[in-house]
Design a protein around this nucleic acid. Structure first.
Lengths: 213, 213
DNA sequence: GTCTATAGATAGATAGAC
DNA sequence: GTCTATCTATCTATAGAC
């Protein structure tokens, strides 16, 4: 209790968040020890318990923050009303957001099984909320006959898997810019819902038109 | 050494393969102990070392067998020569194969980071061989101008992510049959490479045509 | 081929000093 | 807020009996 006036180790708190995320992403939750995290932060393992009651709570915090930020960023992204525009907007948003947080994405999708029941349910609810955003766009586009899809739920899962998959192969400094990658995926997503290429569909120039936007 | 004549515990060997796969898939490699595996098999933990020198070798074996079976199954699948037909064939093959082995798929994609360097390289080489199959189909279709794709490599990764993603949501006994799911994905894959729906593209019946094949 | 026993390391978490 | 010290449990892997 006898401690210097100040803000309760905010720097340490932040460092724990960063290092735990990094280590969980690289080695997996179960393979990382509290001592490893403490070493990375520069404190002793026992010091971590000032910030988290258990290791499990550290994982939950990482995933919770990621999902909260994802949903908040979506709310601030000004999605257009037209389903076709919305679908393109969602695709670009999703890829941009995910490419800037590869570690958090990786942990949030891979470590669901490391969560205990209550923690899993909390994260799963947030994930479903996000999935529903895309599903609603697809449903509306299907209702308006803009999209040629037989099953909006399946299409939503397929598209999400496709656009999240960028993270498995993208390396910054690679052959393609992020904006080029986004447009390649926009073209594929459009095709997957039965939209024609953005220009007339009977010329080889279509390809170039689709790519550069 | 004094042992009954026979085949060196083939039943136990098989049981270890099955149970280790099952447990790795459910809890993750790092979270599963040798004791847990031994319990599931019905022997003592020390007995496992008759079959595997280390836990790491057990993981490698699981993944090695999966990749070998995948590549062998592909060789036996009689892929047609035409790129469009080949792409549809690949899509159906991939989904069928992966839906019958959800645990092996899960472990093989999720536990790559749990492999030590040499083991990782071995599995990665097999994975690349499989990816190349799809990439070659896409390249050929692009060269023939059957497909409207700007980047066969990106398209291959996108399509693989999409069709592997079925495993994350499919539950047997669900709303859709496996064959219906395959055809939904074939339609999306076709769209993603710029192919028009199988029938005329300006009628709402197209949707039905695409779905049932 | 499977067992018991155990070595040797490391895990998550707590108590209490400063 | 971070430390040292430590508890208790569990881990992978080996030795050697049967």
């Amino acid at each position: 209790m006898a401690r210097t006036v100040g803000s309760d180790g905010e720097k340490t708190a932040k460092a724990i968040q960063e290092k735990s995320l990094e280590l969980f992403a690289r080695h997996g939750y179960a393979a990382v020890s509290m001592r490893q995290i403490a070493d990375a932060v520069g404190i002793q393992a026992s010091g971590l318990y000032q910030y988290y009651k258990t290791k499990q709570q550290m994982l939950l915090d990482v995933m919770q923050r990621h999902m909260d930020e994802l949903l908040a960023a979506w709310e601030n992204s000004n999605c257009p009303a037209d389903p076709t525009d919305a679908l393109e907007h969602f695709t670009r948003f999703h890829i941009s957001f995910h490419l800037t947080r590869p570690d958090a994405v990786f942990v949030s999708y891979m470590e669901l099984r490391s969560l205990e029941e209550a923690e899993f349910d909390a994260i799963e609810a947030l994930r479903k909320r996000y999935e529903r955003i895309l599903r609603d766009i697809l449903r509306q586009g299907a209702a308006e006959k803009s999209f040629q899809i037989a099953d909006p739920h399946v299409s939503a899962m397929a598209i999400l898997a496709m656009i999240t998959g960028v993270n498995t192969w993208y390396r910054s400094g690679g052959r393609l810019s992020q904006s080029k990658i986004r447009e390649l995926y926009v073209a594929m997503v459009r095709g997957a819902v039965g939209l024609l290429p953005t220009q007339t569909p009977n010329s080889n120039d279509v390809q170039r038109e689709v790519v550069h936007v």
